[in-house]
Simulated scan of single mutants.
Amino acid sequence: MIKMYGIPNCNTIKKAKDALAAKGLDFEFHNYKKDGIDAGTLESWCSQVGWKTLLNQRGTTWRKLSPDDKEVINQDKAIQLMCVYPSMIKRPVLVVGDKIIVGFDEAVYAEL
């Protein structure tokens, strides 16, 4: 089973959905805006791919944070921020069995 995490109006999510559909792969979509994300899931992902891979520090949500929130980022603070602002999580996050894929890469999706 494939599960995709993201925000439905994101262009990268749309590309990822199209890539999976083109291959005829079924997937479940988890909408951060509607369903949120819990710290336990983020901790599990961080243990596999690292918090720096998950935290999008180039997006508008990051840029709108106060200087205090951006200071001294570590895994615990990153998880806290991603729980409060799930749009700060790089998109998409694809869970395929026990494997985590962060971001959209056509070559990686072609191998699924």
Results as ranks from 00 to 15, higher is better:
P92I: 10
N56V: 12
I37D: 06
V84Q: 15
N9F: 12
L54M: 13
G103V: 03
V84R: 15
T41F: 07
V84P: 08
D38K: 05
D26G: 14
S66N: 08
P92H: 08
M82P: 00
V49H: 01
I7W: 10
I7N: 10
A16R: 04
E28G: 13
E111Y: 13
L94Q: 13
F104T: 09
I73C: 10
E28F: 08
G36E: 09
V108W: 13
K34R: 14
K52N: 08
F29Y: 12
L112H: 13
T61K: 00
K33R: 14
F29I: 07
M82E: 00
T61I: 00
C83I: 08
K33W: 07
S87F: 10
S66G: 10
G6T: 02
A107S: 15
K33P: 03
Y32Q: 06
D76G: 11
I7Q: 09
A78E: 05
L42W: 06
P92Y: 03
G40Y: 13
L65V: 05
G50S: 12
M4V: 11
Q80I: 04
I101Q: 05
F27M: 03
K99I: 12
G97K: 12
I101K: 05
A19F: 00
K23S: 04
R91G: 03
G40S: 15
I2W: 00
E43F: 05
A78Q: 07
